[in-house]
Design a protein around this nucleic acid. Structure first.
Lengths: 337, 337
DNA sequence: GCTGGCACTCGATAGAATAGAGTGCTAATA
DNA sequence: TATTAGCACTCTATTCTATCGAGTGCCAGC
């Protein structure tokens, strides 16, 4: 009946998560009664576990197994038990300061070193993004006909970088139409940051051309991710985190789509979250993953962000501590140099 | 008795490799008698397979299974049957030219795009290395004491880049000794290319210091790989190529050690080889992998190289064609711009 | 030198039996 | 009313056995 989370149930949920994160085995009631500090019998724990299951926090792999946390369970755990940074978690990473005092070299090198640092600290895959494309403005949009059904989309940004993409069209579009659309889009979009939600221009009247416009806008959005420098390290850690080889394959293939990872991180941050869990990510191949993110701040301005991708069954306190530590470290370091 | 490879045995070996590369299943004699063009009975094939096994070209996973090629078998196959580039293999990659005519952007972008191209063409992991460190000269070597047993090794190169590494010492070394060794090494090595086989300086007399020198030289060699820009793409392809998750883990972890990959490629090229197979690589975690490499030539000079890492069970003709095509394409492209 | 024939090997698959971890429920208890 | 002990029950994991069949090595005959 009640969705109420009394103290004991919360403690049990917490114990299940802690235990499962460590062992990867479903957690049984009698085991908890023995080792967790909860001073009730296994039968009582069993009852509470039953409730927790019906409320959606726990689940059973099969009838006669222990419980494992659901995404909702992890969510409650994260929201309730890892609100603030625990000093004891920070302690194990005393090397971070040392890293940032010694770190040097070009920005790119700094980012990729940071990414490597983070993946080595946590044993999960790490993502570091460079300055966000809010600061990058669209200068020009051009469509070049390759053959009747294929068009090359070119975008030049305010830093002179050129992004390109070949578009496959459903129907033929004439050269003059392409020119018209190119001019219209350039006029409409010039000076707008690539990161801004690109407004849809009013209809032109010709449905084929309207469709083309939508296609172009979609692809410009993808450039958003591509223009942004992004450093992803720790592929081998992904292979450690899962034991089904096709999960590994799925996750790695997804991480290789940098624009997807970047917009994922952006999405999480824009909701004011630090953690996104499993299906919350909204990316099917990452259903078994969680993401922990943090922006880094340079001279008061939020320049970019760092993130971490691991299994939902991850050590959240440790990872959150690591991500926080590294993001502040990186921010400070960049403010100096 | 005879290590002779008559025509039929060679044809059988070839058929086994072709079949196994495609199916990943051990190949049996009766299957070959049916589908390969070899016009003898399965019993005859069986005899030859037996010989091929005793000569080390084939092996059996277990007594009552078909044969699979050994590294030696692949080696014979590659040396005998894929000497020259087959036009039919090249045909399937007609998009390569298009890629290089359209490719643009900074050198770094060029390399990473090329790496991605290669991994997508072949479905194996691709490596592209930038200009070799033969052109990078050592300017200075410094040892800085951190604490009695740990020393920071700094190397400055002719381009002003700084490489660093913390060394763990077996025994204490005094500050003045460190200074002496630093000066000696700088004097000895200044102006030498990082890529050259660093000659061992004569003994100093103090065994501890000699040991330190060796340690420093070893680590300078590692900088060789680190200073070199290297672009490795296709982690998810590794997960496709093997179905044992810990093989995937091992291979990915090895590929993350860029200096190892770079020196591996260098080794293969320095032997004048294009292909290295399995244990030939001399790297235990890559025992199930083969590497196909090719240098790319810009204005008559060999600037860097591209490589491909896949399972020994790889499609050698196709991969060789792809690597050749991409390396010449990249060379041409870089000569222009 | 090649081939048909055949006994043999050994993994892969399926079925049956067993053990045991863990559950849900009920009746007793504080 | 909340907790607990007890117990029947469920279901996986493991082990064992039997069987199947692909593929081999060898031999005798062509």
């Amino acid at each position: 009946m009640s969705g109420l989370m009394d103290k004991r149930k919360a403690a049990i949920l917490r114990a299940v998560v802690d235990e499962y994160v460590q062992s990867a085995e479903p957690v049984g009631s009698s085991y908890l009664a023995r080792v967790s500090g909860i001073q009730v019998s296994s039968a009582t724990i069993r009852n509470d576990m039953n409730l927790l299951e019906h409320e959606g926090y726990l689940t059973q792999p099969h009838t006669s197994a222990g419980r494992i946390p659901t995404d909702k369970g992890y969510r409650y755990y994260v929201d309730t038990f890892v609100n603030e940074v625990d000093e004891s978690d920070v302690m194990q990473f005393k090397s971070v300061e040392e890293f940032f005092t010694k770190a040097h070299g070009a920005l790119a090198e700094m980012f990729s070193d940071t990414s490597r640092l983070l993946t080595n600290m946590t044993n999960y895959a790490a993502v570091v993004t460079g300055p966000s494309p809010e600061t990058i403005l669209i200068r020009s949009v051009q469509l070049v006909s390759l053959d009747p059904k294929r068009v090359l989309l070119l975008m030049v940004d305010s830093k002179g970088a050129v992004e390109k993409k070949i578009l496959e069209l459903a129907s033929d579009v004439s050269e003059s139409d392409l020119e018209q659309v190119s001019n219209m889009l350039t006029q409409k979009l010039r000076g707008f940051p690539l990161g801004s939600p690109l407004c849809k221009p009013e209809s032109i009247g010709n449905p084929d051309l309207d469709q083309l416009c939508v296609l172009v806008l979609d692809n410009l959005k993808k450039f958003q991710g591509e223009t942004e420098a992004v450093y992803i390290e720790g592929a081998s850690k992904v292979a450690n985190a899962f034991d089904a080889v096709d999960t590994v394959r799925r996750v790695l293939a997804t991480l290789e789509q940098h624009f997807l990872v970047v917009s994922l991180i952006r999405d999480v941050l824009s909701k004011g979250q630090k953690v996104a869990i499993g299906t919350e990510l909204g990316i099917e191949p990452l259903a078994e993953c969680s993401v922990v993110v943090s922006p880094y701040v340079v001279e008061g301005e939020q320049l970019g962000s760092i993130g971490l991708v691991g299994p939902t069954r991850m050590n959240y306190p440790k990872v959150l501590a690591a991500v926080n530590l590294v993001s502040t470290g990186l921010g400070k370091r960049l403010s100096e140099g």
